[in-house]
Design a protein around this nucleic acid. Structure first.
Length: 553
RNA sequence: UGGGGGAUCGUCUAAUGGCAGGACAGCAGCCUUUGGAGCUGCGUAUCGAGGUUCAAAUCCUUGUCCCCCAGCCA
C-alpha cells in the first residue's frame, strides 16, 4: 500500500502516520474548490496531490465545494469544476460534498462555542473591526462588545440567523487573543450577515460562515485525515487547530505545500476572470488560458498534465516553472501517439512543369514513425501543389536547405524537385514557384547526389481548406505579474489565424482528434470545426532547430 | 523593531551525516525522406560567515535575501 520511498514530504508524512497507526491507518483527503471560477493548471497540482495521495495509500479523496460565499459562487462553476476533474482523470465516486450541507451543524457548533464563552456577537462595523485589529507590529484592542453575557450572545446570534439585522451590522467572532502575533487569532470573524441567495441553500440562510470556521469543521465531519492546502494557509493552521480543539471533535492534520506558478501566464482567479470579462480572451476555455478547459481545447491531454505535475514535484519552495516544461510533456506524449499528416499553414502555389496535368498518383505515407502499428495511408499527388511560404527563399542563407532558385529539395513521400522559375506579381511578391521533378526519385534517394531538405505539401486539387489557429504564450515576458500594468503586456501574436490546406485524409477529422502536421506542430480539431469550415488549434510547435539557427544570423 | 514559511545548476527537483543526481532549457556533435524524433558529449548549483565531525546541502551559531499575513474573500 504505502510507497517504500515516498516522493515528497507530504507522502512521507502520510506514510509515517500510517506506520504509527495515527487515524487508524486510514487516509482521507479532500479537494475543496470554491465554485467561483474555472479550474486552472494550478488546481491540477492540488487535484493530483489530493486524489493521487488518497489513491496511492488506498484511501479516499472527497470532492467538497467550499461554497460559503453566496455572492461570488455559481452553479455554472460547480458543473464545470466537476467536468474538469473527471477529465483530468480523477473520480470521487459518491463522495461529493458541499460545505453548505454542514451549515446547520456549523451553526450548532457556533452556539456551543458561545455557551462555552469562546465566541461573541460583535456590533463593530467592518471598518471598526479593522481598526481594532491593530497592525502587523502592534497588538489589537478588544471590542467593547467582547464581554457580553452568554445569554445575550445566544439571543443576538439567534436573531442574526432569523434575519433581524441588516448586512454588516453584526458578526459572530471567536474570543481568542487580540494581542496575538498571528493576526488570524485576533478574534476572527466566524459569521457575517449576508441577505443573499445561495446557489444551493437559496434563502434559507442570511448568515454565512467564514472560510476558517467552515473548513476545518467540514474536514472533521467528513473524517478527512490529511487536509492538504497551499502555503498561505500556514498562518491559519493555529486557528484551524483551535476550533477543532474547542469543539473536541475529530482532528485532521493540515499540511501546506507551495502552489504552482508558471512563466508567461497569470494564474490568479481574479486576473483570469478579468481576461474573460474584458474579452481579452474568448472565454474560460480560450486555448490561451491556463485553465483546464483552455488547455483541453488547446489540445493538451490529461496524461500530459498529470505527467507535468509529477515532474514539478511537491515542496514548500517558492517556484516559477518554465512553460517549456509543460510543453515538453505534451510534445513527448504526442510524438508517441499522434498520427502524422501534411498541412500547409501559409500556402504558396508550386507547379511541376514536367508533370502531366491530368495525372494523379496515390503515394504511401507512414502514419507514425514512432509507432509501427499505426500503419500508413495514401496521399494524392498532382501537378499543382501547395507548399509552405517559408519553405521557399529567393535569397537563401548558406544554411538554408529548402527551396530556392536552382535548388533541389525532396517533397515528403514523393519526388525530388528542382526550382526552375519564380513567378511574381506586380508588387514583386512571389506568387508561384515552378519546378521540375525527377521521376526516378519517387520515395527513393538519388544515388549521385545528396538532397538535404524535405518539405511538406498538399495537392492543390485535393487539399482540404482549413483554418489554423496558431497560439503562442499570452504574455511575452516570463513574469507578467511583475509588470506595471499586466494587461498592457498581452502578446499581440498570442493568436494568429491562417487559412491553409490539409491533406484529404483529414476531411472527416473529428473534434478533439490530434495530429502532428509534419515539420510544423501538433494540432487538435477545435469544436468550432464543421464539414464546411475545418478548424485546427495548434497545441504546440515542434522543436524548431532551424528557428534557432535563423535567429543567430 | 509582529507572526508564519523558504533558500541546491538558467528553471523545477533529488539527497534525510558518506561520490551533489535527474528532468526541462541551453550549447556542440552524430543521425535523419519531418531542420521532428532519437543518440552522444558539455555544469565552479548547495545564500554568506564561523563551528561540530574522519566526513556537512544535511547538525550548531550567526548573518543575508525572498515569500505570505492587517477581507464581514477563499
Amino acid at each position: 500500500m504505502s510507497n517504500p520511498e515516498p516522493r515528497d514530504f507530504i507522502r512521507q508524512a502520510v506514510a509515517q502516520d500510517i506506520a504509527s497507526n495515527r487515524f487508524g491507518g486510514k487516509v482521507v483527503t479532500r479537494f475543496p474548490p470554491e465554485p467561483n471560477g474555472y479550474l486552472h493548471i494550478g488546481h491540477a497540482k492540488a487535484i493530483c496531490t489530493d486524489f493521487g495521495i488518497a489513491q496511492e495509500f488506498g484511501g479516499h479523496c472527497n470532492l467538497r465545494f467550499d461554497d460559503t460565499n453566496p455572492t461570488k459562487e455559481e452553479q455554472e462553476y460547480v458543473d464545470a469544476i466537476q467536468h474538469d476533474i473527471k477529465w483530468l482523470g480523477f473520480d470521487w465516486g459518491d463522495r461529493l460534498y458541499f460545505a453548505s450541507d454542514y451549515f446547520e451543524q456549523l451553526y450548532a457548533w457556533a452556539v456551543e462555542l458561545i455557551q462555552n464563552g469562546r465566541a461573541y456577537v460583535d456590533d463593530l462595523s467592518a471598518e471598526e473591526i479593522r481598526e481594532y485589529r491593530g497592525t502587523l507590529t502592534e497588538p489589537g484592542r478588544e471590542s467593547p462588545y467582547r464581554n457580553r453575557s452568554v445569554e445575550e450572545n445566544l439571543d443576538l446570534f439567534a436573531r442574526m440567523r432569523a434575519g433581524e439585522f441588516p448586512d454588516g451590522s453584526r458578526t459572530l467572532r471567536a474570543k481568542i487573543d487580540m494581542s496575538a502575533g498571528n493576526l488570524n487569532m485576533r478574534d476572527p470573524v466566524m459569521y457575517r450577515i449576508r441577505h443573499a441567495t445561495h446557489h444551493r441553500t437559496g434563502d434559507e440562510w442570511c448568515i454565512y460562515p467564514m472560510y476558517d470556521w467552515a473548513h476545518g469543521q467540514s474536514d472533521s465531519i467528513e473524517g478527512v485525515t490529511h487536509s492538504l492546502c497551499s502555503l498561505e494557509y500556514e498562518d491559519h493552521r493555529p486557528l484551524y487547530d483551535w476550533y477543532l480543539d474547542q469543539l473536541e471533535v475529530f482532528h485532521p492534520q493540515q499540511i501546506e505545500f507551495a502552489r504552482l506558478n508558471i512563466t508567461n501566464t497569470v494564474m490568479s482567479k481574479r486576473k483570469l476572470l478579468q481576461l474573460v470579462n474584458e474579452n481579452i480572451v474568448a472565454g474560460w476555455d480560450d486555448p490561451r488560458m491556463p485553465t483546464l478547459s483552455g488547455l483541453r481545447r488547446r489540445g493538451y491531454t490529461p496524461t500530459s498534465i498529470r505527467e507535468f505535475i509529477d515532474r514539478v514535484g511537491v515542496t514548500k519552495n517558492q517556484n516559477l516553472v518554465e512553460v517549456a516544461q509543460l510543453e515538453a510533456c505534451i510534445r513527448e506524449e504526442l510524438n508517441r501517439t499522434a498520427p502524422r499528416v501534411m498541412g500547409v499553414l501559409r500556402p504558396l502555389k508550386l507547379v511541376i512543369e514536367n508533370y502531366p496535368g491530368d495525372k494523379v498518383e496515390m503515394l504511401d505515407a507512414v502514419n507514425n514513425p514512432e509507432d509501427s502499428s499505426a500503419g500508413s495511408r495514401q496521399v494524392p499527388f498532382s501537378r499543382e501543389l501547395w507548399i509552405e511560404q517559408t519553405d521557399f527563399m529567393e535569397n537563401p542563407s548558406k544554411k538554408y536547405f529548402r527551396l530556392s532558385p536552382g535548388a533541389e529539395v525532396r517533397l515528403r513521400w514523393a519526388y525530388v524537385i528542382k526550382c526552375v522559375a519564380v513567378v511574381k506579381d506586380a508588387q514583386g511578391q512571389v506568387v508561384e514557384i515552378h519546378c521540375t521533378y525527377d521521376e526516378s526519385t519517387r520515395n527513393a534517394n538519388p544515388t549521385d547526389r545528396k538532397i538535404k531538405g524535405t518539405i511538406h505539401w498538399v495537392s492543390a486539387a485535393h487539399g482540404v481548406p482549413a483554418e489554423m489557429r496558431l497560439y503562442e504564450n499570452l504574455f511575452p515576458m516570463p513574469k507578467p505579474d511583475e509588470a506595471e500594468d499586466w494587461k498592457q503586456n498581452i502578446n499581440p501574436n498570442s493568436l494568429q489565424v491562417v487559412q491553409g490546406y490539409v491533406e484529404p485524409s483529414l476531411a472527416d477529422a473529428e473534434t478533439g482528434a490530434r495530429y502532428q502536421f509534419e515539420r510544423s506542430g501538433y494540432f487538435v480539431v477545435d469544436p468550432d470545426s464543421t464539414p464546411v469550415r475545418r478548424v485546427f488549434n495548434r497545441t504546440v510547435t515542434l522543436r524548431d532547430t532551424w528557428g534557432k539557427i535563423e535567429k543567430k544570423d
